[in-house]
Write a protein that binds this DNA or RNA. Structure first.
Lengths: 342, 342
DNA sequence: ACAATCTGTGGAAGCGCATCCGGCCCGCGG
DNA sequence: CCGCGGGCCGGATGCGCTTCCACAGATTGT
């Protein structure tokens, strides 16, 4: 099924078919209609590889994420795909799973497939890989870690603002023994949140409780367990992301304590699941849909205009649910609290 | 950067470069080494569009899922991609979001991009769309709903077995008032589970409580709420998938009841989150990684051999965690139970 | 010794398409 | 009535690659 067969059936030349396909004004309406009918009848589909070969563009966008299993990313992917599809682009997803060789492989494939632009929504990427894109003049959008320049844009999230809001909320509830469960230190965005926590609590002038997690549930569980065994038990815990907070919820429950009566918990991201945890999680919403839209728009803008990159800033929003409450005057011990498990 | 430049630099013909690229034995080792060095120095990458144009194959596999936000699918996607990548294939993901026009659009793009095979991991697909693939001799793998044939394979999950196990577990714990929260009736796999539940409980010879959900958390919440308001309150609830079960957990907690003391809950799927709910969810594991592997293998097999399709069956496994326990002798009412919320 | 193979290589055709360029026909002004 | 411009259209070309075919030189069998 080629353009030639369509041309034959419609009784026109192949050039006319091609023009019709692209809604060129240089085809008379009657001819166009005839061509379109022929395409319809034959079930014709243009071969994108031939199109790409001739045009040098693939109408594909690359999207690099670190872990598709992390609920943060599917929502991002969805939003990104929505925008891309609207503009006639397809999305080529690379989930690296924190594996640098796989990452490198995927970058290679993207180059071979001649993606028109790439959104790198993870900070765990080797600069030599991004350089490969830059060398080939592939527009890039980074999350947090990019420096805007020629063909490079960056979306910056105001993590510090979000953390400050969360700490303010906890302080307002009377909490002073507030612990933080951080993400992996290698992650720039995680370090940023940790730093913001520390400086937000600096006013209290005392040593702060910080445990390291891994931005996954299991890390939250073990960090929480360590916190519970510590000398000073916190009355509130702020987690670097929602998965970690869910882990904390789990850890607290396993220790026979209750949320928020005994300990308040705050997350970060507002993944879909947070609304339905037990109890529903107070968290800082990171606007993923908007992030996706902004990133995709930035990419499309650079493709179209070949223009300079830009930096876009995105704020956050505190979502108060039921995992936070006023600090209790008397701190309970596990022994005094009925274990909710039979 | 084309094959011609590489040929020039290596002092050979383009045919030799192409042969080197494909590790043809018809190139002398010395020449091959020279060519490879030239490719290295130039940072050469073959243009896949040219390759696809000439070969008619794209080395891409399509993967159709209904909702990438549903945690079931990211894990499936991950597994599928793993296998595909190992065999040198890239994956083109279409998340339809239950929108048939988007679905149709994505199918069109897959055809245009000449995918070598498609895994359709959702039953919500219009037969006319799958026919488009079949007409073009694109191998297909279905989940549950396919009839194996020429170029069509099917992976069948033993939902009935899983449901029977779950019901058996509950029966063994002394429960007799067991409710079921089904998925959407349009979904064949959901109907299958519902039917299995009904026939597994047929032995009790009484009317069964069934509420309809939507395979999402919110549907689980509202179905559970309805159940709690009903004339006979169940002592155990079986949900059609884990998301629904999580919703049930939420609904029970919101009503001031406890799991599993007051009501036992069982899910289906065993998504990653189930391990960390409060309390951890007893559920029926659907082997997603294996499902992905089997589906991808089936596809690759059909591509390679052009062979007939086959049907593969996959069993399930009951995972017992903490959301189920023995039936209490005295059923509590909400008023008698301390509401765990301040 | 010569022919018959075999090995390593290069040239050229063609995959399906977009697009440049040239040709046709119509209607207009001179 | 002729020339000329503009609106439509068709053919040729080339995108980068694979692969068929041709060919030169080396190797073997007879």
């Amino acid at each position: 099924m080629t353009i030639r067969e369509v041309a034959e059936r419609a009784g026109v030349g192949i050039a006319t078919v091609s023009r019709t396909l692209h809604n060129s004004s240089r085809v008379s309406p009657e001819t166009a209609a005839r061509v379109r009918r022929a395409m319809q009848e034959l079930g014709y589909r243009p071969n994108t590889h031939a199109q790409s070969l001739v045009s040098g563009r693939s109408h594909m966008l690359g999207l690099v994420v670190s872990d598709i299993i992390n609920p943060f990313f599917p929502e991002l992917i969805q939003g990104f795909q929505d925008v891309a599809l609207q503009h006639g682009y397809d999305v080529f997803i690379a989930s690296t799973g924190y594996d640098s060789s796989r990452m490198s492989h995927c970058v290679g494939r993207m180059i071979e497939r001649k993606v028109d632009g790439v959104a790198i929504m993870t900070s765990e990427i080797d600069p030599s890989l991004t350089a490969q894109f830059a060398n080939r003049k592939v527009p890039l959008v980074f999350l947090d870690v990019g420096k805007p320049g020629n063909g490079i844009s960056n979306v910056r999230i105001d993590y510090a603002g979000g953390i400050t809001d969360a700490v303010g909320h906890l302080l307002g509830l009377g909490h002073t023994d507030i612990a933080f469960i951080s993400g992996p230190v290698e992650l720039k965005s995680a370090r940023e949140r940790r730093t913001a926590f520390l400086s937000a609590l600096h006013v209290l002038g005392r040593e702060q409780l910080v445990e390291e997690g891994n931005h996954r549930v299991d890390g939250g569980v073990s960090a929480m367990t360590r916190l519970l065994r510590g000398a000073t038990m916190p009355t509130a815990v702020l987690a670097s992301n929602d998965l970690t907070a869910i882990g904390a919820l789990h850890g607290i429950h396993a220790a026979g304590l209750r949320v928020p009566e005994d300990i308040s918990v705050v997350g970060f991201d507002d993944i879909a699941m947070s609304e339905f945890t037990v109890p529903p999680l107070t968290t800082v919403r990171l606007p993923r849909a908007e992030l996706a839209r902004v990133a995709c728009d930035a990419l499309l803008g650079m493709i179209g205009a070949g223009g300079k990159g830009a930096e876009v800033r995105l704020g956050t929003e505190l979502i108060i649910r039921r995992s936070t409450s006023h600090r209790r005057t008397a701190k309970p011990t596990p022994a005094l609290t009925a274990a909710p498990r039979s």
